[in-house]
Simulated scan of single mutants.
Amino acid sequence: MSKVCELTGKKAMIGNRVSHANNKKKRRFNINLCKKRFFLTKEKKWITLKICAYGVKLINKIGIENALKRYKKNIKINKNG
């Protein structure tokens, strides 16, 4: 199960964990993923996406059809969710 946003394509970033003594050790900054269902009104079908918090905000702002059009994703559409 990969930690990649299905809408925007965002992935985890690599950075440093810095101690008080300024020692640096590699770490990962994971993205905030959640699994959400959306209803496509044109096709009258539900889709389930694993998207980041930015993707949820974007869909709330511009709508699911416009978001899919903006990122041009070929997402499989399920009949029942």
Rank of each mutant, 00 (worst) to 15 (best):
K11N: 11
I51K: 03
Y71A: 05
E6H: 01
C52H: 02
F39S: 08
M13L: 14
G55F: 00
I77P: 02
M13E: 14
L68S: 02
N23A: 11
N22G: 09
K73Y: 00
L33A: 07
C52I: 04
L68Y: 01
K79H: 07
N30P: 10
K72M: 08
L68K: 02
Y71S: 04
K42G: 06
H20E: 14
R28W: 08
G9I: 02
I59Q: 03
E43F: 03
A21H: 14
L33M: 08
G15Q: 08
K10S: 08
R37L: 10
S19M: 07
L7C: 03
K44H: 10
K25Y: 12
R17N: 15
R27D: 09
I51H: 02
R28L: 13
K44D: 14
K69R: 12
N16E: 09
I59V: 12
L49A: 07
N66R: 08
N32W: 05
I62R: 03
N32G: 05
K57C: 08
I64V: 13
K25C: 11
N30K: 13
N74Y: 04
I31K: 05
R37H: 12
K72D: 13
K72Q: 13
I47D: 04
L58R: 05
T48A: 08
I31T: 10
A67M: 03
Y71R: 05
N78W: 03
I51W: 01
K50W: 08
K11F: 06
I14S: 11
N32I: 09
R37E: 15
K24H: 10
K42E: 15
R28A: 10
I64C: 01
G63H: 01
Y54I: 08
K72L: 09
R27N: 12
A21V: 07
H20F: 12
F29G: 07
K11R: 14
K45A: 06
R27S: 10
I51R: 01
K42P: 02
C52V: 06
R70D: 08
I31E: 02
N22S: 12
N74P: 07
K73G: 01
R37P: 03
L58Q: 05
I75E: 01
A53Y: 06
N30D: 12
M13Q: 12
L7Y: 00
E6W: 00
R37S: 14
